[in-house]
Design a binder for these strands. Sequence first.
DNA 1: TTGCAACATTCCTCTTTCGGAATATACCGG
DNA 2: CCGGTATATTCCGAAAGAGGAATGTTGCAA
Lengths: 128, 128
Amino acid sequence: MELIRIYQCFCDRTRLRILNLLQHGPLCVCHLQRILGEPQVKISKHLAYLRGHQLVESERCANWMVYHLPEEPSELLKRNLACLQDSMREESVFQRDLDRLKEVLDELGADCPACVREHHQHQNSCRS
Amino acid sequence: MELIRIYQCFCDRTRLRILNLLQHGPLCVCHLQRILGEPQVKISKHLAYLRGHQLVESERCANWMVYHLPEEPSELLKRNLACLQDSMREESVFQRDLDRLKEVLDELGADCPACVREHHQHQNSCRS
DNA sequence: TTGCAACATTCCTCTTTCGGAATATACCGG
DNA sequence: CCGGTATATTCCGAAAGAGGAATGTTGCAA
């Protein structure tokens, strides 16, 4: 049942933090690692879990692996990701991660895949 | 984190079926047992799990234990139960359980707590 | 090539979850 | 108090989840 696959992904704190960040655009593992401040193996295994449950997709980009939410999510997934995003607003940890996202993007600068950089530059130019 | 407690409850098929039924009003264990067609110990343990995670509350009513969704759910829980209800519409198993709910209510008739009976009688009179 | 950086996977351990069989508990009617 | 009905708990084994240490893999750059 797809519903259960979705909720299985939602019941770990680290995975929720990852999904929160990916709602704002694609990221590579090194970004996630720095933003979350967790060991590489932990991030990598949770990403594998999410991929196995079809909650994220990934592409290799030169030296990096870029993870993002599914390009064509089902209605079910869309609805539940939207509800999740609302729900996450109430916990400060998720807001702190988003603040940290901006810092880390600046910090790493050009040292990440073009697709990631471009997405977030575009986001910034829209916002400012 | 309350969010995780909620999703932990959502990632088992039997628990989803129970929550689906309880969205329509309080029920006792014997109702759930007959509707779901699962052994008593299984129902009882999932109810204990849900209670431990504060997704349901229970009261003894003479010989029966009546379970229902929290009287004063948090905004978080309300939002997620609403999303769950939308999501469950797409799986036929949940609709079948609701059909079976009516059958079992008739079948058991007066052989259940007054509070359960009254709730569902009221529902019926409203519908018809 | 070689070396390095970014990730993934394997192995191990601890904990949680899930299901069933058996047993216990609570309440009712007589 | 007793028997019966409704429900809970305990004990067991199998499986999944989560984290870390160590090791493998992949791709680029010199």
